[in-house]
């Protein structure tokens, strides 16, 4: 009886831990940001007016300020930035899938020893900081960078191409950075698949590509979804890569947030942007969750 209780409370503790973590590092900051988003700018430290103030003697005054949100809807810049972020994230996700799927598939079909080497190669970039790797792309793409020099040396072009500070460079940076996040879940998913299913499909008359389309692809749906989410959500908020590679015209919501926060010191507006960004992502996450839930609740599919 005693042991049972001890085990029970132990389990409770283990379950409570992640919740505690979420409370401390997600809910609390979120509440703070939410609070700031409803306050007014002030020339102070921190640069906003308190939300709650003691009015007269004992009356608590709450001044909710919706102007920050209203402001986001009046200035077209923000809507454009939102839309552009979604577009960039979507295109990046699709590119990552198109490049990552064949890579994951190849890895899963490779011989076990080759497979481990390939896996190591995919994870290897994580050993250096992402910032450094993005800087490396500047070195590759700039006017007298490696890519241009090689192309000129080969005689393909005569004048250096403007690669850096273009949407192209930004996509290169994002796809490059997030590719492992697509490859790893896809690999884990495809690797588990029973190859005899492909044989069975071919036996029943499928050509290899038909077998891929009818068997492999549907069975790797979970990997595709997981990989997409892992790229799409951070890519929407991405700001380092658009700033460093994308040039002045890459209007990303993450970048706007940064500018509002650090350049304009407009914390309330920045917070409002952050809250809206979160709201934007909630439907995607809910959709993903519902699919995952259906998958685990029903028979394994």
């Amino acid at each position: 009886m005693k042991r049972l209780r001890a085990r029970f409370s132990g389990r409770g503790l283990v379950v409570a831990l992640p919740y505690l973590w979420l409370l401390l590092f997600f809910v609390a900051p979120f509440v703070i940001v939410l609070k700031i988003s409803f306050s007014e700018v002030d020339l102070a430290i921190p640069p906003y007016k308190p939300l709650f103030s003691w009015y007269a003697e004992h009356a608590l005054a709450i001044r909710l300020n919706f102007n920050n949100y209203a402001f986001l809807f009046t200035d077209k810049l923000y809507a454009d930035a939102f839309l552009n972020s979604v577009k960039v994230a979507l295109v990046s996700t699709i590119l990552c899938l198109l490049i990552g799927y064949p890579m994951a598939y190849g890895m899963a079909r490779a011989r076990p020893r080759t497979r481990n080497v390939l896996l190591l190669l995919v994870v290897l970039p994580f050993w250096t900081s992402q910032l450094l790797r993005v800087y490396a792309w500047i070195g590759l793409l700039k006017a007298n960078g490696v890519v241009n020099n090689v192309l000129i040396r080969l005689g393909v072009i005569h004048n250096p191409l403007a690669l850096l500070y273009t949407p192209f460079a930004m996509y290169v940076g994002i796809v490059y950075s997030y590719l492992p996040f697509v490859i790893l879940p896809l690999y884990a998913n495809i690797e588990k698949m029973d190859w005899q299913l492909i044989e069975a499909a071919e036996d029943l008359g499928c050509r290899p590509w038909q077998a891929f389309y009818k068997i492999t692809l549907p069975l790797s749906r979970n990997g595709i979804l997981a990989g997409s989410m892992l790229v799409f959500i951070p890519a929407v908020c991405e700001f380092v890569i658009p700033t460093l590679l994308g040039g002045p015209n890459s209007l990303m919501i993450g970048r706007i947030l940064w500018d509002e926060f650090f350049s304009n010191r407009a914390w309330p507006v920045a917070s409002a942007v952050a809250i809206l960004m979160l709201l934007l992502l909630v439907p995607f996450m809910m959709w993903y969750q519902s699919i995952q839930a259906r998958e685990t609740a029903g028979p394994s599919g």
Binding site: D194, Q196, L197, E199, A200, E202, D203, G205, S300, G301
Partner: peptide, 20 residues
């Protein structure tokens, strides 16, 4: 000659049913 062009069908020992 690949499997899909042989006038043959096979029942696999492990069944190989399509789970989806």
């Amino acid at each position: 000659v690949p499997p899909y062009e042989r006038p043959v069908n096979m029942m696999f020992q492990s069944y190989a049913l399509f789970p989806h």
